[in-house]
Design a protein around this nucleic acid. Structure first.
Lengths: 221, 221
DNA sequence: AATTGTGAACCTCTTCACAGCT
DNA sequence: AGCTGTGAAGAGGTTCACAATT
């Protein structure tokens, strides 16, 4: 949670929806739409129009009554709110299957998340080049992080190493982690973590199939 | 949402936490713990003890007052609740970077999600073998889905194909989708989708770093 | 003495509904 | 006439606090 323009608390759910609106606006713009209503944005994301307006209202009054929102204008505003109106240098730790796939993940690059540094401690991987980036030794993490001005890292190492990797990188002033290891890592105040666990998503589907009574269109998120 | 043993609605948040408890119980069991308290489970996941007890209470009274929960017993119960006390045959569509990485993703296999079928429509990929599985032509999806008894699919195709792929597979009686394409796909009643968008997670971190006022340990989840 | 299970209180998020603006 | 922005109501989720149990 952080604070919006009016001192309101912004929920994580709102932030995630902003990301969705941003994608919808891109899509709309590419299709030649110049204005868009809250109802249209809602339909594109399986939400209500009131929800869309409420989310946006935490950050300002971007719309025009009777008309809707200017697509390009709103897109720019959301980019600024999310902090993706610039690029972020990102480190990736762990050049295994998942890690190597993420080095070349288009969605990251498109939103300005540039993987500038790949670290691993496996001597068989250090020095290898994947998607044009050379794997550096995690032993030199501190130096490499400073050199590449990294504040965000993606953790794709086995569970038992995740906490140690994060601790070391926090010392080197990395301030946000996207953690793919299936374990909850602890960080000090002022440092942010999102735990991404793809198996949990499949388990939620398994639960839904196993326990379904009243069908629903989309679960959770 | 579905219905618990007492007719209560079960929230998506509760289901996700059950997955985490399941992992914690595995970890505890491997370390020789035979009983565990709600407080211990809470600490392992950054939650409150009351939250843990409330979550479990939706499905029954698994604990023993004064003692806690029997680790193995609770683990078994959660596996049954989540529907992961058996294996699921899973199809993966899209043998790109992410798709190929997921074929060999250990976390899926460990929870009983077995990727039995890989589909793609690229002639350069059909027939190739990745991690021991041959890529089949998506044109034959219906036949392959029936042959492999698939009810769950992972979608790792470009956005513009995602909805079409899902529609076709719904016709072949696939009932749950884990969608990695950065678009909200629509499905009929009785079919479940989870939209997994890794870039959105980074954007939430970007937002946190950009707007932070009062630091917090973990955002969202 | 320790710890669960749970109703009630509390807090947060979503939806409603309409005044206000274009 | 159409659509936003928002206070208030409603729904849903979390925490409290304590009786019940071992």
């Amino acid at each position: 949670m952080t604070i919006g323009t009016n001192g309101n608390k912004i929920s994580d759910a709102t932030v995630r929806r902003l990301s969705k609106y941003y994608r919808s606006l891109k899509y709309a713009y590419d299709r030649g739409m110049r204005t868009i209503s809250s109802q249209e944005l809602a339909d594109m994301n399986g939400l209500t129009a009131a929800q869309v307006r409420k989310d946006l209202s935490f950050f300002g009054a971007f719309g025009r009554r009777g008309l809707g929102y200017y697509v390009a204008d709103l897109q720019r505003n959301i980019a600024r709110i999310l902090g993706i109106n610039k690029t972020w240098n990102v480190a990736l730790v762990g050049a295994g299957n998942i890690g190597r796939a993420l080095i070349d993940y288009d969605q990251f690059r498109q939103q300005g998340f540039l993987i500038k540094l790949v670290l691993d401690n496996d001597p068989n991987k250090v020095g290898n080049i994947y998607h044009g980036i050379e794997v550096k030794d995690f032993a030199n993490a501190d130096e490499e992080i400073r050199k590449n001005k990294i504040r965000v890292a993606i953790i794709a190492v086995p569970s038992q190493f995740a906490q140690g990797v994060v601790d070391k990188m926090v010392e080197s002033k990395v301030r946000a982690f996207l953690n793919f290891a299936p374990i909850t890592v602890q960080v000090p105040d002022g440092v942010f973590v999102r735990n991404e666990n793809m198996a949990i998503e499949l388990e939620a589907l398994s639960f839904a199939l196993t326990n379904r009574r009243e069908p629903r269109r989309t679960i959770g998120q």
